[in-house]
């Protein structure tokens, strides 16, 4: 166990996939920079992979003071076993006070294992992080976003947290920032490697990821059928955003599960969420209520979605949405 007295500095896992650092990792570095400045600590980015050293400079420009680079064939793409073992090894050697990891599909799987191995406290899926008297203060939603819990970890180190995508802005690159790059030699470290990756498939052919989109246009039961989702897709494309769906639309088989927003689907917080033909069940609100602006288009003026909508349009979505798509295209051109 890492003692509180020895622990110092704020670590961020700079998770990369195919040589590109995940947006949520950059967001975490930006946030770590603020926490570090408030507490006279350094930001350490931990970069694991194979031939990834070239990414270190961008991490420094994003706010890191130190970049630990670990290159190993077993770390080429994210897998729980080798990532947990290498990160635990690094943490035990350098004793960070805080360890932030992006709350994406890799981080949500990895962080609890790492916390267990280090006997550290973990606040999962945080929407807010701040610093108070030597402690990380994390805010995380529970009960489908109906409760916000403030969580601290007074003794155990590192204080771990996973950060939800888009909870913090992406840092602006500063080319004048200087930092130190340290290549780590793992020596004879035993690395578990039990699960093999056979195939990695990207579906949706380069579509904007739902969790990372600034603008999401979602359709619900009111769409009435799969082919009519083209209207929603066209508006999402006009905004260069992503297409979402309610559980009703997914369960009806109109749209794949990967698009589902809500309690049993994805949680998103875009700048603008446009809900088309979605009544606004509590389970749906759980997945999108933290969006900055919510626009609801629904023919039923009493639909509960209007109670949370910043702007509500009671009307026929098949009339309104195509008009809006044309107007957006005109504005964007």
């Amino acid at each position: 166990m890492i003692s509180k007295a020895e622990a110092k500095h704020i670590w961020v896992l700079a998770e990369q996939k195919k040589g590109k650092v995940a947006n949520v990792a950059l967001e975490a570095i930006g946030l770590a920079r603020k926490l570090a400045s408030a507490s006279s600590q350094e930001v350490w980015a931990v970069l694991l992979g194979q031939d990834v050293g070239g990414l270190a400079e961008g991490l420094i420009q994003s706010g890191a003071d130190v970049v630990l680079v670990v290159e190993h064939p077993k770390l080429d793409t994210f897998r729980d076993d080798p990532y947990v073992d290498v990160l635990a090894h690094l943490a035990e050697n350098h004793k960070p006070a805080v360890f932030l990891i992006g709350a994406n599909s890799a981080g949500r799987s990895l962080a609890p294992r790492l916390a267990t191995k280090l006997r550290a406290g973990l606040a999962a899926d945080c929407v807010e992080l701040s610093w108070d008297a030597g402690n990380l203060v994390a805010v995380r939603p529970m009960y489908g976003g109906n409760v916000l819990a403030t969580v601290t970890c007074p003794e155990a180190r590192p204080q771990m947290a996973t950060l939800r995508p888009k909870a913090s802005p992406r840092p602006v690159l500063d080319a004048s920032r200087k930092g130190r790059v340290e290549k780590v030699d793992l020596g004879g470290l035993q690395i578990r490697d039990r699960v093999k990756l056979l195939e990695s498939v990207e579906t949706g052919g380069g579509e904007v990821k739902l969790e990372e989109a600034d603008i999401i246009v979602s359709g619900g039961r009111g769409m009435g059928g799969p082919e009519r989702f083209a209207v929603v897709k066209a508006l999402a494309d006009a905004f260069k955003g992503a297409m979402g769906a309610s559980r009703a639309a997914v369960d009806a088989g109109w749209v794949p599960y990967a698009h589902q927003v809500g309690q049993t689907g994805k949680t998103v917080s875009p700048k603008v969420y446009i809900a088309c033909g979605i009544s606004g069940a509590i389970q749906h609100l759980a997945g999108m209520r933290s969006s900055e602006i919510i626009v609801a288009i629904n023919k039923n003026p009493d639909a509960p979605i209007f109670k949370v909508a910043t702007f509500g349009i009671a009307g026929d979505l098949f009339e309104v949405v195509p008009l809006l798509t044309e107007a957006v295209k005109k504005e964007m051109s």
Binding site: R119, A120, G121, L122, A123, V137, P141, M142, G145, N146, V147, L148, A149, T150, V151, T152, C153, P154, E155, A156, R289, S290, I294, V295, P301, F306, K307, V308, A309, T310, F311, G312, I313, A314, G315, D316, E319, V320, L323, L324, A327
Partner: peptide, 30 residues
């Protein structure tokens, strides 16, 4: 290792601005 120090409801959303008019007018306003 973790302690919950506070539980609070999420900040209320200031919602409910309905945009009136025909579809054309609604889209223009939006």
């Amino acid at each position: 290792p973790t302690k919950v120090t506070k539980l609070a409801p999420p900040p209320p959303r200031s919602g409910g601005e309905m945009i009136p008019g025909t579809a054309d007018e609604q889209v223009k306003t939006l």
